[in-house]
Structure formats: C-alpha cells, structure tokens
Design a protein around this nucleic acid. Structure first.
Lengths: 197, 197
DNA sequence: CGTTCAGTTGACTAAGGTCAATTCCCGTGG
DNA sequence: CCACGGGAATTGACCTTAGTCAACTGAACG
C-alpha cells in the first residue's frame, strides 16, 4: 500500500528539520497511508475539523478562506511539502480554511493526533513540531510584511523574482491574482504595464 | 535586583503555556535580570543581532520594519507579554525589524541562547518553545488574513471591536494608521466617515 | 464549427495617497 | 494668566490605482 520510495521522500523532508534513526522514524512510518484526491476535490473544508497531515507526492493544492462569498487564497502547495489545515489540527477546532486540489493529487497522510502522541513521548518529535511551527511563523511573517509594505504591483514583481517560480509556472492567473490580493482584471493590467517597461 | 513579584508575573505568564514545578522554573528564573528602556530608545534594531527576550512589566513598545525609508508597524507590546525580535533570536541572523519604547519601559530579560539550552535538556521547555511558536503563527495568520480580506476601513472597524482596546486607548493615531497599513490622513477620514454613521 | 472559460481591454467609479493649509492640544516661559 | 511654539490631527484639492461591469479575444475541446 505505501511504497518505500514515497516514504523515503517524506523521511528526507523531515530530516531537514531533525536527524532520525530508524527506530525514531518507524514511530511515524508505521502510521502512514496513501491518499489520492481528484482535481477540484477538497483536502480540508471550512467548518470541518481537520485531522490529517499530508505529504504531497504528486499534484498541487490551493489553500483559501471564504469571506463574504469571496475566496482569498493564502497558499499553494507543491510536491515534497507537508500539507495541513494547521490551525484546525493544533487547536482541534473546525477549519476556517479550504484546501483544494488543483490537479489530481497523491499524498502520504498520517493523523495529527498520532504525531501529538509522538511528541509527548519523544523529545525529538517535539523538536520537530517546534521547528515546523517556527518555519511556518517565518513564512507568515514574510507574507504579512509583503502585504503591509508592498503595493499589488510590487508584490507581483517580488513574486516574479522570488524562488516561487512554481507558482508562476503552474498556477492559473486568476488564482495568482487572488493570492496577491487583487482581481484577475487588475493583475492583467499590471502585467501589461510591466511588459512595457 | 530582580524582585519576586515581577518574576511571579512571568512565571504565571509561562504557566499559561506549560505547568512548571519550582525546580523547572528555577532553570530559567536564575537567569533573569531587569532592564529599563527610556521612551524612544530601542529594544531591537534593524541590522543588529538580537539575543534578548523580554517580559514587559511596565510601558509599551512598537515593532516596525523600515522599507524605502518608511516605517511599517507590525505589532504593539503591552504589560505582561513577551517581547523579542523573534526571528533574529531563532535564526541567529541580524534583526530586520525595530522594537522601540513608546514610553519609559521596565522589563525582565533573559538570553535566548540560554532558553535554547533549556529546551535541549528539558522536554518541557521544548514544549514551551513549540507552543510559543504556534501562538505566534496563529496571530500572524490572523493578521495576514485581515490584510488580505479586509479594506482599510474594515480593518479599523475590526480593531475597534476586537479585544485590542489597549491599542486604541494608548497608541497615537499615526502609529495605528501605520499598523493598519494606511496614512494618518486616511485614518482620519475613515474615522470621520465612521462618526457620521 | 460552436461552446466554454480564462484572459484582456475599455469606460467609469471608488477609495486611498499626496501635498498643503488649518485647527487642536498641550506644555513652557514670560 | 496669557502668549507662543511644536507636534498631532483634520480638512480640502487633486492624483493615482484598483475595483466593477461589460464587451471582446483566443485557445481548448468536443
């Protein structure tokens, strides 16, 4: 059911945060399973409590909130990254956000509650959880500062020159606009202005 | 030098995150000292590596970035809260932000490196560090979603109806405007529109 | 070929930014 | 007690840019 190549990718990913021997790794590895999501189906949905953490093997996902019937995209996920409705997992409350597959998607999944057990009994897994939270906070800070200090046009230019080329290459323009906090129409104009420079 | 009432406040604050017995507490308590900062002086400064974590006893501080010679306020600190240039502490790199006293300020301080030692040897302090990071990430997510989904006017209304009354009451309007991502002139107009409703 | 949906373009509107003048508030010194 | 100075906040005039709505284009697909 779960193949060794895939679990190896996840292990490598986690080992960017902490060093693991086989025994420590098996604490999580024995609880992995595989999950596929069809394009446009949801990994997490507004109002539902999310329990699963995923590790993306193939495909991509889009994370968004809904405010006044409008979507606001906050994140894109690609291969080799962990995916979760983080705040629902750690608080146990219903998710306020949606995570939807932009393409047919394959992932390894485990239950966050199991991870929670692990970091109660294992200092090392607790360290992992800390580092993930710190990593997340760093990313959020970055995004917040961008929204606070840059105009939509500057945010687009920053995206172009960032290491997030995957977003430019693989995400439809309307979602990129949404991610930048503007309408698709405005993004089109910004691109137009930008070409003329 | 450090009085028991003050350290008690910090212990209470930390115990909102984790339970501590006297021995565990003393691991940190023995490394506390007091620090005062005059109004307009800095607790952390752009370009300098920050090592200290503070616990605010009296006063208030403002945290801001500087982009194109303009300040962008991201946070206000009040009594009974931890203060630090978090990302400088955890990464060891120079701080990108400034933390400046808005009034004469008194705090307890300890060195982040000491805390880092603690969570290497103590699972419980590691848990504390995780919970702080999670708390921070939650707050940042909230702020980011606000910037992405609300207009400046809506952000101001949200601030009014939030549990952040201290900001309204104690922070000069120009800094509030900056925190909302707008100019003082615009905030003044928004307030004016708001009164007429 | 049509159908559909993403992206572009045009005309108009709304809201915040900019710059400058004015008012308000508060503390200081005569 | 009043006059003055300085900083914060307000107000007015004008500018810039994103939003809205609608029409149009173009590529993908059956």
């Amino acid at each position: 059911m779960v193949n060794k190549t895939d679990t190896g990718l996840l292990r490598n990913h986690i080992q960017q945060f902490i060093a693991l021997n086989d025994e420590e790794w098996s604490l999580l590895a024995t609880h992995l399973s595989e999950k596929t999501i069809q394009k446009n189906d949801f990994f997490a949905e507004d109002g539902k409590t999310a329990k699963l953490v995923g590790f993306l093997l193939e495909g991509s996902l889009r994370q968004f909130y809904i405010k006044n019937q409008e979507e606001r995209t906050t994140y894109f996920y690609f291969e080799n990254h962990l995916v979760s409705s983080y705040f629902s997992c750690i608080t146990g409350k219903p998710s306020a956000l949606n995570i939807q597959a932009l393409a047919d998607t394959r992932m390894l999944v485990f239950n966050y509650d199991h991870l929670r057990q692990l970091f109660k009994i294992s200092h090392k897994w607790e360290t992992f959880a800390r580092l993930v939270a710190e990593y997340l906070a760093l990313g959020l800070e970055d995004r917040m500062v961008g929204l606070l200090t840059l105009s939509p046009e500057e945010r687009y230019e920053q995206l172009l020159s960032s290491n997030k080329q995957k977003i430019i290459q693989r995400i439809p323009q309307q979602y990129i606009a949404n991610y930048l906090g503007i309408t698709p129409v405005s993004l089109s104009r910004i691109r137009n202005r930008f070409l003329k420079k």
